[in-house]
Nucleic acid binder design. Sequence first.
DNA 1: AGTTGTGAAGACTTTCACAGCT
DNA 2: AGCTGTGAAAGTCTTCACAACT
Lengths: 206, 206
Amino acid sequence: MGVELQISKPTRERLIRLVRLLDQLEKAGKTTVSSAEIQQRTGWTSFTVRRDVSSLGIHCSSPAGYKTTVLKDEIRRKLDLGIEEKLCCIVGLGKLGAALAAYGGFANSTFKIVAGFDTSVNRTETLIAPFPLYTTTRMESVIKNLGIEYAILTVPEASAQEMALRLAACGLRGIVNYTTAILRVPETTAVENLSVIDALQKLSTR
Amino acid sequence: MGVELQISKPTRERLIRLVRLLDQLEKAGKTTVSSAEIQQRTGWTSFTVRRDVSSLGIHCSSPAGYKTTVLKDEIRRKLDLGIEEKLCCIVGLGKLGAALAAYGGFANSTFKIVAGFDTSVNRTETLIAPFPLYTTTRMESVIKNLGIEYAILTVPEASAQEMALRLAACGLRGIVNYTTAILRVPETTAVENLSVIDALQKLSTR
DNA sequence: AGTTGTGAAGACTTTCACAGCT
DNA sequence: AGCTGTGAAAGTCTTCACAACT
């Protein structure tokens, strides 16, 4: 506690992915992995990998490289991944929202979807999901009562900004924005933009 | 055209989003917008906005700021957005793939989905989409015949790497990766990662 | 012998401050 | 008067080179 680790954003994002890679390698039976091999598998230089790891104050080297399991667990611990369960909701239960509601990948993570919201009563009553669905009128109270910290926003673009402000007002820590809308919310709530069109445009302007 | 515009990645990503913001402002009837107002709406500083715009060699200032339409069209032109139609395919027609197949947002973009692929004949025959569906055995030939340049990857994590390599071998320019897999493909093919879990973890480690 | 860990250099990005334009 | 455009400074991130470790 108390040691002020200042990890830069690029480093944090690489480490998050590195954990996943280490997980894959571990399952494939590799007990050690060198920074050179991580370079080969990710495209990040071995310098960068070593700097990233070392910036966490982790030391688990051997002449064969890092010990897969140790490194993975250490990064998880330092970044607070994989321990505490974090509650999420899906806002907007159209096709995309419904697809995410059925997504099995959350099971392997610490994120748990505990509520879904839609303006249409028809949707909330028809859709079958492994968590309760509510109309958006009840959004604020459900979020506060359950202690939800993250939202996945899959509403139509036209209502995205309004919903984002309502969510931020509930004190959410973050919003995953699947819409193309440019969201502006108070700084206490972070936004990650996952619009397909954005992603394709990034690829095409490369 | 010869003028070697070297635009940095952060600048490019902001400009892509700026185009969308300008589009929204234009529709809201704003004819001009200052860098200070863009700062207010995006969180990027006005310095950065001006530097980004100026790095394209664009000049469309007035004492009231940039002219919304002119700026939008100029960025579009310089970044090669919004002119030529770019062909895409969806690989993996589970719930997420199907949701993207039905997504209307592509209509406003220059990206056009012209094919879908799945290993299961059952899926390709059952699912209704506004473009033809094929089994993955035909993937290489369809991509080459139609001239598809981008793929949206929504297969199960276990087959993601293999599919990515097959897609890269077709000479695709880019892959939008919705899986949590860490993909490694030749440098000629770019990858944008849009995993929900990744996004949530970025938010939670902030 | 082969690896990590890290000070120092280098490259890149953002911020500042203000000249110059309309 | 109020904005943009940009050289220069500051700040951040990556790469290099090599000492230290196993």
